[in-house]
């Protein structure tokens, strides 16, 4: 069994009212430890609902959720402990900052876990370094910082809890390209350094293609695909039919293939594309 697992997970909003809406329909997932998963799907496909089940903020209407082999909601008193294993960073997390200093805000999570001061201090400093916050920023008020910095503080606040699974809901929303690359870079670094499971909800295929090892495609309250980027982007047409975009480079290569040039289906990174084109040119010369 993987680190996260769902069994026939179904969630219905407003059951018994005229506003009844099935948000998740019988979902079975098994996510292995150490994976970096990108979740894609258009608005209303159930992405946010799904991730809120992973740390027990939402209770399934039916079905089960397992974290690290332990069933959520089996024992109410264990819920808070299990919650510490799954760190959830919401959309626009900077709006949850509240402490006087950045240091205190990052330590909010670890302190709630009941860690001693030395351990809290170690974690705050380590995550601050990981997200690229200079030591003097730690003494500042979080409300004086720039948008990108605030976002990094908020992410650090969850990372400092050292969860086994880190889930981020649209961590790059509303940031400029520089800020976006920076956030994605630090998430990647965190994943490499800790080897923990990371899940990333995103609208941007480019972001996902660059960063993840597995892609989870959601559509109409269901899991449509859960596979490696090569396999998912090889079905470029299916994705476009669902109203999802594919990375620009994939679109270029799909067109080239239609024009009769023999390329593989699963081109999604510029580096790989470069290699293919160079190889083709070599062949022509030779």
């Amino acid at each position: 069994m993987g680190i996260l697992k769902t069994e026939n997970l179904t969630h219905i909003y407003g059951e018994g009212t005229p506003f009844r809406k099935v948000a998740l329909d019988n979902i079975n997932l098994d996510i292995a430890e150490g994976e970096m998963v990108g979740i894609i799907g258009h608005t209303g496909s159930g992405k946010s609902t799904l991730i809120q089940h992973f740390n027990g903020l939402l209770k399934p209407t039916s079905g089960k959720v397992f974290v690290d082999g332990e069933e959520l909601f089996a024992d109410k008193h264990r819920l808070r402990d299990i919650r510490f294993k799954v760190g959830l960073v919401f959309q626009y997390p900077e709006y949850q900052l509240f402490e006087e200093t950045v240091y205190k805000d990052i330590s909010f999570g670890p302190k709630n876990m009941g860690l001693d001061d030395d351990e809290v201090d170690r974690r705050v400093k380590e995550t601050a370094r990981l997200v690229g916050l200079k030591p003097d920023v730690l003494k500042k008020s979080p409300f004086e910082l720039s948008g990108g910095q605030k976002r990094r503080v908020a992410i650090a606040g969850v990372m400092a809890m050292e969860p086994k699974v880190l889930i981020l809901d649209e961590p790059t929303a509303g940031l400029d390209p520089h800020g976006r690359d920076r956030i994605l870079g630090l998430i990647k670094e965190y994943h490499q350094e800790k080897g923990n499971t990371v899940m990333l909800v995103s609208h941007s295929m480019e972001d996902v293609a660059k960063t993840v090892s597995k892609i989870l495609v959601m559509g109409e309250s269901n899991v449509i695909m859960y596979d490696t980027p090569e396999h998912v982007f090889a079905k470029a047409k299916e994705l476009t039919d669902m109203g999802l975009t594919v990375p620009q480079i994939t679109r270029v290569f799909v067109r080239l293939k239609e024009m009769g040039i023999d390329f593989p289906d699963e081109v999604y990174s510029v580096d790989y594309a470069k290699k293919l084109v160079l190889r083709l040119l070599e062949q022509k010369k030779g």
């Binding site: 903020l57 808070r80 510490f84 959830l88 919401f90 709006y95 909010f108 999570g109 709630n112 876990m113």
Partner: peptide
């Protein structure tokens, strides 16, 4: 509602 969820996710009791 959103803020409460976010702080609960950080272990607020």
């Amino acid at each position: 509602d959103k803020i409460m969820s976010a702080q609960k996710a950080r272990g607020a009791d």
